[in-house]
């Protein structure tokens, strides 16, 4: 029962934090330096790992699909399968998981340390809301960077699949991309980007909220980081089901 209450409390405080952060939206231009810094941290520093991961996911998808589809003479549709899978599902989900592990954990650790070492208390006594200078720039940064990361993840995944198809399955790039284009629509990519946007915002909000509500010392900071990442991962997969259901 207590765990259920904690879950609802967590949802409530996260939504409150979102509303509070959005109420300071008009200050975003003044905070553009913080916003740019967060865009760099969220986007640029995450890009290499997104590129590596998505290229191999595309490659593995092509390999698995190639071996399976060869049995019933459908390997020319590998491009379609990799394209749709990356755009609609694996691209946004894998990028969100990376963001949770890399960016979310860093946010939770930083804000939890600031809370434990009284920096957040100092902000409050100065009448500077944490939601304004710590949460809003991060939310804005993820909202801008997540679609970019997803698009790059999709593209790299498609090319990973193309290279694997060419060298390991014997499907030429022209045939691969022709199949990819034939059954893919713009809507498929947009659905994926929308999912990525939802996941990114949820990850940042959850990690900010858990970080800011940390009490105790170094041990609790570690526990908060773990909790933030675990909750983010669960929410990504749960939301994935509902958002996919809503979009199809």
């Amino acid at each position: 029962m207590q765990q259920l209450i904690n879950v609802f409390e967590g949802i409530g405080s996260t939504l409150q934090l979102l509303v509070r952060a959005l109420s300071f939206s008009s200050t975003l231009w003044r905070q553009r330096q913080r916003f740019i810094e967060q865009c760099y941290l969220v986007g640029y520093t995450t890009l290499p790992i997104v590129t590596i991961l998505c290229s191999f996911i595309g490659g593995v998808l092509a390999l698995q699909a190639g071996y399976s589809m060869e049995n019933f003479g459908a390997k020319q549709f590998i491009g379609t399968l990799v394209g749709l899978s990356m755009a609609r599902e694996l691209g946004p989900v894998m990028v969100a998981i990376l963001v949770a592990g890399r960016v979310g954990s860093a946010i939770a650790a930083e804000l939890a340390s600031m809370r434990v070492y009284q920096e957040v208390d100092a902000l409050e006594t100065m009448n500077i809301p944490a939601a304004r200078i710590l949460v809003l720039p991060r939310l804005a940064a993820i909202a801008v960077m997540m679609p970019i990361l997803c698009i790059i993840g999709d593209l790299v995944g498609w090319f990973g699949g193309s290279l694997t198809s060419k060298f390991f399955i014997g499907i030429e790039s022209e045939a691969y991309f022709s199949a990819l284009r034939r059954f893919m629509e713009f809507k498929d990519v947009m659905n994926g980007l929308f999912k990525g946007e939802v996941f990114g915002i949820v990850v940042v909000l959850v990690c900010c909220n858990i970080g800011l509500n940390t009490r105790g010392g170094p041990r609790e900071i570690g526990a908060s980081v773990t909790r933030a990442v675990v909750v983010s991962l669960i929410l990504i997969l749960v939301l994935d089901f509902f958002v996919t259901r809503a979009l199809t």
Binding site: M114, Y117, Q118, E119, D121, A122, E124, T125, M126, N127
Partner: peptide
Amino acid sequence: REKVRLALVFQAGALF
């Protein structure tokens, strides 16, 4: 805190 300007010097400083 909007009406009165008050400042707290924390034990550990609480510097950013």
